[in-house]
Simulated scan of single mutants.
Amino acid sequence: MAEALWGKAALLPGLRVGHFTDLEALTGSTVVLVEEGAVGAVDVRGAAPGTRETDLLSPENTVEKVQAILLTGGSAFGLRAADGVMRYLAERGKGFPTPGGVVPIVPAAVLYDLGRGRIHRPPGVEAGYQAALAAGERVEEGSVGAGTGAVAGGVKGGVGLAGYLLEEGHRIMALVAVNSLGRPFDPQTGRLYGEDLLAEEERALLPDRSRYQGRPEDYRYPFLFGQNTTLAVVATDAPLSKAQAKRLAIMAQDGIARAIRPAHTPLDGDLVFALALGEGKGVAPYTLLRLGAYAADAVTRAILRAVLLSGSAPGIPAYQDLMG
C-alpha cells in the first residue's frame, strides 16, 4: 500500500509552487516551478481548452524538459501571465539553450473566471512573475491562485494538493485548480464523489451532512454553463521518458472523472500536465502502471481538498455552506 501525503509532505523535492491572488477581480495564477527542468507531457480531454506551448510536449517533438507549468484564471487573457514566469526564469538563466540565450519553456492552461469579481482584471505578466517569486515548499490550498474565482458545479472551487509515497520509494503528487461544470458531490445526498479515497486524517475536513437539503432537480441545469475547466499537474520523481509521462497524464485523467460528474464535457477545458523530475531514462511498465493508478487517486483527493478548503465568495456558496 502507498502512504497518502498532503500539505508540505506531498510536494516533491526540486519542485516549488507559488500563487498570485487577486481578490478584487476574483482571479489569479498558480505556477509550478522546476527550474532545473523536468520531462513534460500533457493530456487534454475537455473540448474547450485554453493553452500555450502544449504542442511541444508531444512525445515526438524536440524539447524534452520544461522549467515551469502555469495554471491561471482569466480565460484566454490569462495566458499573458506565462510571460511573467518566463521573465522570472530568464533572469536566473533557466531555460532551453539557444544561440541567442536561454528560452524558458512554460506550458500554460487557463480556466474561465471572468466577471466573478468586482472589476475586470485578468492575470497579466506581473501576475505570473509574482506567482513565481512567491513559489516555495508550502502550498496554500482553497480559494487562492488559479482557484481564486473558481466554481465547481455551483459551489466554490479552488486549488488542492495531494500525493502518495509508493512502496518502491517513488513519489507522486497532484496539484489541481477546480472550476468544473460538473458537480463534485451527489446532489441527492451531499456526499462528495470519491471521498472514500481520502486518508483517515483528511476525513476531519468532511462536514456533518445531517442538515443537507438536496435539490436533485438542479443537477439537470449546471451552474455557470460554458464557464468551466479543471486543470491538474501530476508530478513524480521517477525517471519517466517523455512517452511515459504522456501515459501518466492520460491515466491521471481518471481522477477527474471519479471526483466530478460530468467531466470532460464539451464546455470544459479539462487537462492534465505531467512532470517527471528523474533523468528521463524510463521505468518498467509495471512501475508506470502503479504511478498512473496513484496519480489518478491523487487527482481525486486534490479535487476534494480544493472543494473542502475553499470558502464562499459573493454569490458562490462554499460546499460546507450546503450542510447548514
Rank of each mutant, 00 (worst) to 15 (best):
S75N: 07
I69V: 15
G153K: 05
A302V: 03
M173P: 06
V85Q: 04
A199M: 03
W6A: 11
R305N: 03
A177T: 13
Q213F: 04
R118C: 06
V42T: 12
E35W: 01
R261L: 08
L248R: 15
E167I: 00
L198H: 10
S75A: 15
L89Y: 01
S75E: 07
S143T: 10
G214R: 02
Q130T: 05
G292D: 11
G315T: 04
Y286W: 14
T62Q: 14
G269V: 04
Y212T: 14
D43E: 11
R220K: 15
P97G: 10
V44D: 07
G37F: 12
R209A: 15
V139I: 04
Q320G: 04
G157W: 00
A131R: 03
A10F: 10
G50P: 00
L197I: 08
A298F: 03
A134D: 12
P122W: 02
T62V: 08
L114N: 10
T62H: 07
L224R: 14
Q253M: 15
V178S: 13
A10C: 12
V283Y: 09
Q213L: 13
E3D: 09
G142S: 01
L11M: 09
L79M: 14
Q213H: 11
L111N: 00
G84E: 14
D186G: 15
P184R: 03
D43M: 03
R92Y: 03
Y88G: 00
P239G: 11
N61H: 08
I303W: 00
M1E: 12
Q188C: 13
K65R: 15
P317A: 03
G315V: 05
A263S: 15
T62G: 15
Q253E: 11
V63N: 08
V234I: 10
L309W: 00
L165N: 13
A146I: 05
L5E: 08
L322M: 10
G158C: 04
T54I: 15
P49Y: 12
D83L: 14
A131D: 10
G214D: 11
T72M: 05
A318V: 09
L57R: 14
G324R: 12
Q253F: 05
